[in-house]
C-alpha cells in the first residue's frame, strides 16, 4: 500500500509540471488549450527518440521544452494572427502533433528500458526508481514554481495576467495582447512537454497515445488543487496546483486499488471534472434549499 502511495506521489510530481502549464492557459489566460494533449506526447516523443539515439537525457528534456514551446507558438499564431478561435486552434495543433510525434519517434511507441534517463544519476547514488523520480520531480516542480512566481511578478508577467482578465483594458495600456497570449501559450506548452519528457523517462516508454485525455487530467488536478489547497496568494496558488496533481494521482491509485477497471479511468476522471466544473451551478441550485432550512431554524 505504501508503495502504491509513494508511486502515486512520485508520478504526481511529474504531472504537477503539466498541471502548472494547464493552469497558465486555463486560469491565467482564460483559454481552454487543447494543444497540451499533443505537446505532452511530443515531450515524451522527443525525450525517447533522443535517448535511444544516445543523447544526454537532460539535453533531450531541454529539447522537449523547446518542442513544446514551438507547439504553443503555433497555436498562438493560429489564434491571434489567423483569428481562429482558441479552442479550435488548440485542436488543430493537437491533431497536427499526432503526425509529427509519429515522425519524431519513427513508430508508435519506444521502450526506454535499461537506457540512461534523467533519473539514472540519482539511482546510481543508491535511490530506487520511485524515490529518484520523486526527488527529481519535486526539484523540478519547486524550481518551476519559484521561477513562475518571479516571472508573473514582472512587467511582462503582469501584462499576461491582465490579458486573461481584461484584454481590452490591456490594449488601452499599450500592450499587444496578441504577444501576451502567444507568450502564455509558449510557456504553458513548454512546461507540458517537459512534463511529458519526465513521465516517459519515469515509466520507461513513450507512446503516441500518451496525450489522450491529458487536458482533462490537467483540469482535474487544477480544480482539486484549488478546492482542497487553494489560497489567495499567488505562490500558494502555484503550490496548490502541485498538491492537486499529487492528490489526483493518489485518488486514481486508490480507486484502482479498490478494484475499478483501468479502462474506466477516463470516464471516472471526466465525471470528476464535470462535477467540479459545475460546482458553482450546483451551489446556486442548492442555495435556496439551504436558505429555506435556515429560515426554518
Amino acid at each position: 500500500m505504501l508503495e502504491i502511495l509513494l508511486g502515486a506521489v512520485s508520478l504526481g510530481t511529474l504531472w504537477a509540471v503539466m498541471t502548472i502549464g494547464v493552469f497558465i492557459t486555463y486560469r491565467i489566460l482564460n483559454i481552454a488549450d487543447l494543444t497540451v494533449e499533443g505537446s505532452i506526447a511530443m515531450g515524451a516523443a522527443i525525450a525517447a527518440r533522443g535517448i535511444i539515439m544516445g543523447m544526454n537525457p537532460y539535453v533531450t528534456t531541454l529539447l522537449a521544452l523547446i518542442g513544446g514551446m514551438a507547439a504553443g507558438l503555433v497555436t498562438g499564431l493560429l489564434h491571434t494572427q489567423l483569428k481562429i478561435p482558441a479552442l479550435l486552434s488548440g485542436i488543430l495543433t493537437m491533431i497536427a502533433l499526432w503526425s509529427i510525434n509519429l515522425r519524431i519517434m519513427g513508430k508508435s511507441n519506444i521502450s526506454l528500458l535499461r537506457m540512461d534517463t534523467v533519473y539514472t544519476m540519482l539511482e546510481n547514488m543508491g535511490l530506487n526508481k520511485t524515490d529518484a523520480v520523486m526527488v527529481l520531480g519535486l526539484l523540478f516542480v519547486l524550481a518551476i514554481i519559484i521561477l513562475l512566481y518571479w516571472f508573473f511578478g514582472t512587467e511582462i508577467g503582469c501584462a499576461i495576467r491582465a490579458t486573461g482578465s481584461n484584454p481590452r483594458m490591456v490594449r488601452a495600456q499599450g500592450i499587444n495582447t496578441d504577444s501576451t497570449i502567444i507568450l502564455g501559450l509558449i510557456l504553458s506548452n513548454g512546461l507540458v512537454a517537459v512534463s511529458g519528457a519526465l513521465i516517459a523517462q519515469s515509466q520507461s516508454y513513450s507512446d503516441v497515445q500518451m496525450g489522450t485525455g491529458a487536458i482533462v487530467i490537467g483540469l482535474a488536478s487544477v480544480i482539486i488543487g484549488e478546492v482542497l489547497f487553494g489560497t489567495k496568494k499567488f505562490f500558494g496558488r502555484l503550490l496548490s496546483l502541485a498538491l492537486g496533481a499529487i492528490t489526483y494521482r493518489i485518488i486514481i491509485a486508490l480507486v484502482l486499488k479498490m478494484g475499478m477497471p483501468a479502462n474506466d479511468l477516463k470516464l471516472f476522471t471526466a465525471i470528476t471534472v464535470a462535477v467540479a466544473l459545475s460546482l458553482p451551478v450546483l451551489r446556486q441550485y442548492f442555495m435556496p434549499l439551504r436558505k429555506s432550512f435556515k429560515e426554518v431554524e
Binding site: 511578478g153 511582462i156 495600456q173
Partner: peptide, 19 residues
C-alpha cells in the same frame, strides 16, 4: 497592480519587477 500597468502605458514591458 492595475495602477502599475497604467503607469507603464506605452512603455516596453521588461522582466523588471511589476511594481
Amino acid at each position: 497592480e492595475n495602477l502599475a500597468l497604467a503607469y507603464r502605458r506605452g512603455q516596453k514591458r521588461s522582466l523588471k519587477w511589476g511594481i
